[in-house]
């Protein structure tokens, strides 16, 4: 399962990059995805872009995967699975989670909140936020957050830490930009 999740992570990243670069009809975008994937497997010395990206990124968080999948589906079919209020909620959650987590991980703080993710605290907090999101009308965000804990329990990634299913550096880095965009487009 770990290998599948890693593969899905890289696939979502490359496909999203292709869709971002290629505008127009869905068929053009699909062609762009195919070309990007082909290029990803072209040899670069003893490696290729696919393996390089896998080495860099490893596994995405569930929130990342859900937002990227939504972006792809919306771009290709026009259908929106994660509506705007839910996307705002998710980006807000990952922005706050990352602010708590990453400076400490990089040694900028003496306290290590990552450790909490090995126990119940983070999982229960995520479920509580999921419940709150549901009753605030952000059902899609609520489902994504529930899947965070479900995926953690199922062990789809090599990590057994709930934080790794909730947030990753990529989604954290884009979250402030995305929140500004979503607010401006309100």
């Amino acid at each position: 399962m770990i290998v599948y999740w890693q593969t899905l992570s890289v696939l979502l990243l490359l496909a999203s990059a292709a869709v971002l670069l290629v505008r127009g009809h869905a068929s053009r975008r699909l062609a762009g995805i195919a070309i990007v994937l082909l290029l990803a497997f072209l040899p670069l010395g003893d490696t290729n872009a696919w393996l390089w990206l896998k080495g860099l990124v490893g596994s995405l968080s569930v929130v990342s995967a859900a937002l990227l999948a939504n972006y792809l589906i919306t771009s290709l079919t026009g259908r929106v699975l994660v509506d705007k209020p839910s996307r705002k909620a998710l980006y807000t959650v990952v922005l706050l989670a990352g602010l708590l987590l990453y400076p400490a991980t990089l040694g900028l703080s003496l306290y290590d909140p990552y450790r909490l993710g090995y126990g119940l605290v983070v999982a229960l907090a995520v479920l509580a936020v999921a419940l709150a999101a549901w009753f605030c009308g952000r059902q899609a965000a609520a489902v994504v957050l529930a899947v965070v804990v479900l995926a953690d329990q199922a062990g789809v990634s090599a990590s057994v830490n709930t934080w790794d299913y909730l947030v990753d550096p990529l989604v954290w880095l884009v979250s402030p930009v995305m929140l500004v965009r979503l607010h401006l487009r309100a």
């Binding site: 549901w134 009753f135 489902v143 529930a146 953690d152 329990q153």
Partner: peptide, 15 residues
């Protein structure tokens, strides 16, 4: 909403 709440509770118990 009831189904989702039950799912959350079950996930909490599983965790």
């Amino acid at each position: 909403s009831i189904v989702f709440t039950v799912l959350i509770v079950l996930l909490g118990l599983s965790a």
